[in-house]
């Protein structure tokens, strides 16, 4: 699946997007965040406060208990400040 990052999540991870293949044991957004944190210091720092991370699956907002099965694209970003 493709992960896309925005704002300070993008800056801290140091990437705008990447393709990942999480292990089968990762079934929800919350588990995905936990798994990403093990991939390096940048990830651990960016995702240190998971409650501050907003998530979209296939460009629609979801909660962190949402299953990730069937997700083509998952966006991770801070609370939005539009308008």
């Amino acid at each position: 699946m493709k992960l896309v990052y925005f704002a300070w999540v993008r800056e801290r991870i140091g990437l705008a997007e990447e393709e990942v293949t999480p292990p089968d044991s990762v079934t929800t957004v919350h588990e995905l965040l936990d798994w990403l944190k093990t991939r390096g210091e940048e990830y651990a720092e960016a995702l240190k406060y998971p409650e501050a991370i907003r998530v979209a699956i296939n460009q629609e907002h979801v909660r962190q208990n949402e299953p990730i099965a069937g997700a083509r694209e998952i966006g991770l970003f801070p609370p939005m400040t539009g308008g």
């Binding site: 979209a56 907002h61 939005m80 400040t81």
Partner: peptide, 11 residues
């Protein structure tokens, strides 16, 4: 809704 649901970020 746009303020906190539309995916924009200000720096």
């Amino acid at each position: 809704f746009l303020k906190s649901r539309a995916p924009f970020w200000k720096k």
